[in-house]
Design a binder for these strands. Sequence first.
DNA 1: CCGGACGCCTGTCGGC
DNA 2: TGCCGACAGGCGTCCG
Length: 271
Amino acid sequence: MPELPEVETTRRGLHPYVDGVRVARLLVRERRLRYPIPAATEAAVAGQRIRQLRRRAKYLIFELEQGALLLHLGMSGSLRIVPAEAPPGPHDHLDLCLEGGLAVRLRDPRRFGALVWTAEAPEAHPLLRHLGPEPLDPGFDGAHLHRLARGRRLAVKPFIMDARQVVGVGNIYANESLHLAGIHPGRASGRIGLARYERLAEAIRAVLTDAIAQGGTSLRDFVQEDGRPGYFRVSLHVYGRGGEPCPGCGTQLREERIGQRTSVYCPRCQR
DNA sequence: CCGGACGCCTGTCGGC
DNA sequence: TGCCGACAGGCGTCCG
C-alpha cells in the first residue's frame, strides 16, 4: 500500500503507544514475509524497551535498547494497535506485544512486507545503507536531482522513484509531483535542466507534505492505525484519473506504462 | 555502472 | 453467474 505519507501517518499514530514502552514478546504467526523471519528474532526483542519509533524512507524503525526492528509495509501492509488478546483476523501475521496489554499488529495480505531485527545501527543495515535523502529534509533539492541525473537516459519518473536518488516517492506521488511540476514522466532524466529540477523537488515536497497533512491517502486496503478504515481519499489530481480532464487545462489525461508502472499525465501541461 | 525485466503474494475488477 | 487474465501502493535481484 503505502507510500511515505502513509508510513509517516502510521508512525505518528503509533509512536505514543510504543515510545518508551517495553516489549512483552513478539508473536509471529507467519514467518514467510518478504524475508523469512528467523526464529531467533523473538528472543532478540523480548523484554526490550522501545526507545523510540522512527521512520527512514518507508521503513519504520523500532529502536530498542539492543539493536532495532526494521518494519516495511510492502504493498499491502498495515499496522494497528489492538488489545493483545483480540483474536487475529486473516493475514494478521504478527503482533509486537507491549507491556500493559496492547499489541502492534501487522496485517499484510500480500506478504511483501518485512520485519528484520538488526544488532547494528539501523542506518548501517544493508536495507538502509544506500538510501538517498529524505525528500522533506534540507539535504534534498533540485540541484541534487540534477547532479545525479547527468548523462542518464532513464525516464524521469522511474528516476525519482529510485530510492538511491530520493526516498519515499512511490507511483502515486511520482505521478502527482510530475504533474504539478509540468514535466512529462517519460522525459529522459538527463535532459532536464536545473530550474525544472528545482521545480520538481519543490513539487515532491509539496505533494508529500500535503498528503501527510491529510493523514495519508487511503486506497483499497489502507487502514488507519487505530483501526478506522480511511475512507477519505485525498485530493489526487492525476493518479487513477486517466481519461478525465486535466485539472489545469481540461485536456484528457493520458494513461501509459512507463518503467513497468502505470503513469498518468497531461500531454499538454507536461513536457 | 546502467536500464530493463522478473518475481515475490493475495485480492479485486473488468471482460467475455 | 463463473472463469481468467490483468493489475495493484514496493523493491531487491538478476541479466545483458
